[in-house]
């Protein structure tokens, strides 16, 4: 008989966290490369019209340099690290201290298939189901398919 994997609590929690991160995605599919064409972007407004040509050249160049520095894409985690707000004393309010705490009520349980209240959880992966019918759908389509 085939050996059945049963996920432990840590893995289950990780899957839930992974799912929550998925819910923050901008696009379901990866953005194709074609998007990088920049021809359609309107040109920035020229602002330094009174400058002498010499002045304008150096100014334009340094502005260009600055702009290329500023538009380097960094993700939020990198920026959080760079900001070093995690090293501030805990009594200084920051992004990290502002996060709301957990509820004092226990979480409600919903069937992952139909969305109604559920009394059971899948033996293998821990997702909830409410009936034999929903369990079948769950096993066919979802069970162990969230794992990365």
């Amino acid at each position: 008989m085939k050996h059945k994997v049963i996920l432990d609590q840590t893995t289950r929690n990780r899957n839930i966290q992974h799912h929550l991160n998925e819910l923050e995605r901008d696009n379901y599919a990866e953005v194709p490369e074609l998007e990088i064409v920049s021809g359609t972007i309107t040109k920035p407004r020229r602002t330094s019209e009174v400058d002498t040509s010499q002045n304008r050249k150096t100014k334009a160049r340094s502005k260009k340099q600055l702009l290329s520095q500023l538009t380097v894409k960094k993700n939020l985690n990198a920026l959080l690290e760079e900001s070093r707000i995690d090293q501030l004393p805990p009594d200084i309010p920051t992004y990290f201290t502002a996060v709301a705490g957990p509820s004092r009520y226990p979480p409600r349980k919903f069937c992952s298939v139909c969305g109604y209240l559920s009394n059971y959880s899948c033996k293998t992966c821990g997702m909830r189901y409410c009936s034999v019918k929903c369990l079948e759908i769950h096993e066919e389509t979802r069970c162990m398919k969230y794992t990365v």
């Binding site: 839930i16 819910l23 705490g101 957990p102 509820s103 979480p107 409600r108």
Partner: peptide, 15 residues
């Protein structure tokens, strides 16, 4: 109830 989707935070009224 953010806990409905497994998020460990309280909802708007509680917060």
């Amino acid at each position: 109830n953010p806990s409905d989707i497994g998020m460990n935070q309280a909802g708007i009224p509680e917060v």
